[in-house]
């Protein structure tokens, strides 16, 4: 049992980690409210006290609007589609891996692992050439397909691990209770698998949402460019002005969905949901 002293130690460590992790976010947040002249002031907070909303205006309704809003639309669309496909495929795959004994089961898992550790940057150039030749360059599918290569392996691994923990006795119990195979799956297994699928979906979404390398390499216009890539195309009001404020504002805006997702699905990611199903 933790004594009072241990508790204090852990609290101190937790605070240090929090500071380390959240300081950059706080810094970006404060920068997003700074005026261009304020950027080099060396102070943490905007000097004008309340700060300015100019940066947000610039990207949402001002000069950078076209660049940012279309990128936001692309990001949301591409990340959602990639997540959806990855989760559906991974669910089927992981269900098979967890439930069935078939030859090549190990191969599927190792291949998935190998793909996920393959350095992204090394396949960008061939993909760039291939996509230009077959007409996928600068399109949504042109990004969704490579994103699947990032999201599928991790989805398969997390879901397979999750499905293995589900007590399959429940499915059998349901069958004895009078359920068909499909009813047993839907009424006994799906409610238990849902949290795992949600968790996986969130992880997959983040991966697709945060990607920069594919986003910048495989797009050239606003038709498919995602937010992380679009940030690199921001320009200041003049040649001599850095677009730091606008980039910070955009960074804050793209962080919001991530935070929202976690808050929304926090309840779904209750690890203890399966407790009580079998012996406790």
């Amino acid at each position: 049992m933790t004594s009072g002293k241990q508790k204090i130690t852990w609290a101190v460590i937790a605070v240090l980690v929090l500071l380390y992790a959240l300081f950059p976010v706080a810094s970006i947040l404060s920068t997003s409210f700074k005026s261009p002249s304020d950027l080099t002031s060396g102070k943490f907070l905007p000097s004008s006290g309340a700060g300015t909303l100019d940066n947000y205006k610039q990207i949402l309704v001002g000069d950078a609007q076209g660049l940012f809003l279309s990128a936001l639309r692309n990001s949301i669309g591409i990340a959602l589609i990639a997540t959806f496909i990855a989760v559906v495929l991974a669910t089927l795959c992981a269900y098979a891996i967890a439930r069935l004994d078939f030859p090549g089961k190990k191969v599927v898992l190792t291949t998935a692992l190998a793909v996920s550790i393959f350095p992204v940057i090394s396949i960008v150039t061939p993909l760039f050439n291939l996509w230009r030749n077959i007409g996928l360059y600068d399109t949504w599918p042109g990004l969704i397909i490579p994103y699947l290569s990032l999201t599928l392996p991790i989805s398969i691994w997390t879901l397979a691990a999750f499905f293995r923990q589900i007590p399959w006795e429940l499915e059998q119990a349901a069958q004895v209770d009078g359920a068909t195979t499909w009813q047993a799956f839907r009424k006994a297994i799906v409610p238990l698998a849902a949290p795992g699928v949600f968790t996986t979906a969130i992880i997959a979404f983040f991966i697709a949402w945060n990607d920069f390398v594919y986003g910048i390499s495989l797009t050239s216009t606003e038709t498919a460019r995602t937010v992380p890539a679009a940030l690199a195309f921001f320009t200041g009001a003049s040649q001599f002005e850095a677009p730091t404020g606008a980039i910070s504002a955009a960074a804050i805006i793209v962080t919001i969905p991530v935070v929202l997702l976690v808050l929304l699905f926090q309840r779904q990611i209750v690890s203890g949901l399966t407790q009580g199903a079998v012996k406790g």
Partner: peptide, 20 residues
């Protein structure tokens, strides 16, 4: 026959209750 057509009831070792 499928389990559901046998009209038997079973009590499992681990109870197999539906947690939700």
């Amino acid at each position: 026959k499928a389990p559901r057509d046998r009209n038997l009831a079973m009590v499992f070792q681990n109870y197999a209750l539906y947690p939700h």
